[in-house]
């Protein structure tokens, strides 16, 4: 039924996710539909337990929805087997997590090119240089994660997400563990991804400042899409978020 226009890169069609069954069932997602266009930077927000992370995970092929469909570039993820799904993750999506983003046994450079090495490809020199320059890690490439600061580690993770030129970057609280300066570097990088390289950035965050970097914000509550904001500013987002609070108290 979904009619995708050519700019739609990812699409959620009434995504639902229920954990457990019977009396113990917990509805994490309750029919969320949304589209994400090329070059669009979207922040996904909501109070704890709103289902925002689950939404991202289902959309990006990390988790299986119990109902509805997630499509990446027109492909229904539910129709793919593990091999194909793995390839989609490796080639079409770049992931950045809140913490534990790197393999401790590999150097920064090896971590960055990991998705390429996994499919036996060699990095394209010009693009790799550009990515490394964009994250500002030229002189840190031989270091192991333990020798890098938290901000540097997260920038390595971003570089890794970019190295395959994925259409989508999926970030789950990427700045959650960072100080504000390091966080700003990462968010700036994401904006550049969207503007300059026309990538679709999906970012789950609870930080209004971070959401301020995005082109639009989706607000989730109790597993439903409750609001959407275009051209957000931190103040507007904070204002909108406050409206969730009384509900929580009640």
């Amino acid at each position: 039924m979904a009619i995708m226009n050519e700019h739609t890169v990812a699409e959620a069609d009434r995504l639902g996710k229920v954990y457990g069954d019977g009396d113990a069932a917990v509805v994490a997602l309750d029919g969320v539909s949304a589209r994400f266009g090329r070059g669009e930077f979207t922040a996904i927000m909501g109070p704890s337990g709103s289902g925002k992370s689950t939404f991202l995970h289902c959309l990006a092929g990390l988790d299986e929805p119990t109902s509805g469909t997630a499509r990446i570039a027109g492909t229904d993820l539910g129709s793919l087997d593990d091999e194909d799904l793995t390839r989609v993750r490796r080639e079409q999506i770049g992931f950045v997590f809140q913490s534990f983003n790197l393999l401790p046994t590999l150097t920064a450079w090896e971590n960055i090119v990991l998705p390429l090495s996994l499919s036996g490809r060699t990095p394209e020199k010009a693009w790799a240089d550009q990515v490394v320059a964009a994250v500002g890690l030229e002189d840190r490439l031989g270091h192991r994660p333990a020798q890098l600061s938290g901000g540097q580690q997260q920038r390595v993770a971003c570089a890794r997400a970019l190295i395959t030129r994925p259409e989508i970057i999926a970030a789950d609280e990427p700045t959650g563990n960072l100080d504000s300066r390091s966080g700003a570097q990462i968010l700036g990088l994401f904006r550049r991804c969207a503007r300059e390289w026309r990538q679709t950035v999906l970012m789950v965050t609870h930080d209004p400042l971070a959401a301020g970097y995005a082109d639009r914000v989706l607000f989730l509550a109790d597993g439903r899409l409750v609001d959407e904001m275009r051209q957000p500013t931190p103040d507007l987002v904070l204002e909108r978020m406050r409206r969730f609070e009384p509900q929580e108290v009640r």
């Binding site: 091999e83 793995t86 390839r87 080639e91 997590f97 534990f100 393999l103 990991l114 998705p115 996994l118």
Partner: peptide, 16 residues
Amino acid sequence: VREIGLLRAVGLSRKL
């Protein structure tokens, strides 16, 4: 287990 999860997320198939 976390490392393996990460590897799977960035594109290592079950077989690999």
